[in-house]
Amino acid sequence: MSEAIATSEAAIEGRSPSRLAWERLKRDKTAWVSFLVVMLFILLAAASPLFQAIMKTTPDAFHPEALDEMKGALPLGKLGGVSGHHWFGVEPRTGRDIFLRFVFGARTSLLIALAATTVATIIGVLAGLISGFFGGKVDQLISRILEIVMAFPSILFALAITPVLESVLESAGVPQGNAARIPVMIIVMATFGWPYIARIVRGQVISLREREFVEAARALGASRMHLVFKQILPNLWAPILVTVALNIPSFITTEAALTFLGAGVIEPASDWGAMLLQSVPFYGVDPLYTFIPGIGLFLLVLGFNLFGDSVRDALDPKSAR
């Protein structure tokens, strides 16, 4: 539908649909703000080793001098020990620098979420393309698999399968700890993420399959591979892009939730979910420690959600938000 409108406008003004979408996106203030928020976090995460050099300490270094030994090793000073040395304060008990743990945590979260999104998108797009294009038995098989995967209680299953997969990876020679944990998280998240992408792609392929341009290519003797990848796939980038943009925040929160529940990244690596978990015993006396990862997670997810919405609106002007 949107394409029909876009092409008719293009006939008058000579602008392509993607160019129109881009111009709509450029005019959208929400898109700009949310894009900047997301970029800020990506930059913070990317610059985390730089901060380490500036602050002359590491996220794992203990700072007993910043703790009040008389008060059960709580941070010295106001607001959880915020100071020129420790911009966001220090962790109770250990005195580790919260700002460094925050930026390194952002890096962990973003890397895992992006890796899981990439894997889930590739599998989902391929499955959706095959399922929608070939139809019949193949379609039925893939649809059944989707149904089964979606019948799994995903968080619960992810929690449960982590020790098992970990033991499998370890017996295959992967060292214990995060070297096994992080791949396990990515595998689990991708396994439960791809069906949603596959379903959307499948629906789109079915509506494109019988269109004239595919018909024409088929009549010219194009191979199936050519039809799927050269004719149909290029028309799908808009819905795929929107799905990806809206998938990243849900993977970020899943990652934090898994770590919060104890089935994710483990010490000494920094992670927002782990920070939240570790702040639980102290939230009464040192609320800032809970708020820093909590607000960070909120802003990053909000940024991605708003940006995803804006991209969708730009690509489909008819959608009423």
Partner: peptide, 22 residues
């Protein structure tokens, strides 16, 4: 709606518990 959809229960739960219970 936007705020609620971007907040996490493991954060909001702690905050609300802190405010209303403690």
């Amino acid at each position: 709606a936007l705020g609620g959809a971007s907040l996490q229960i493991y954060f909001v739960g702690l905050v609300l518990q802190f405010i209303f219970v403690d």
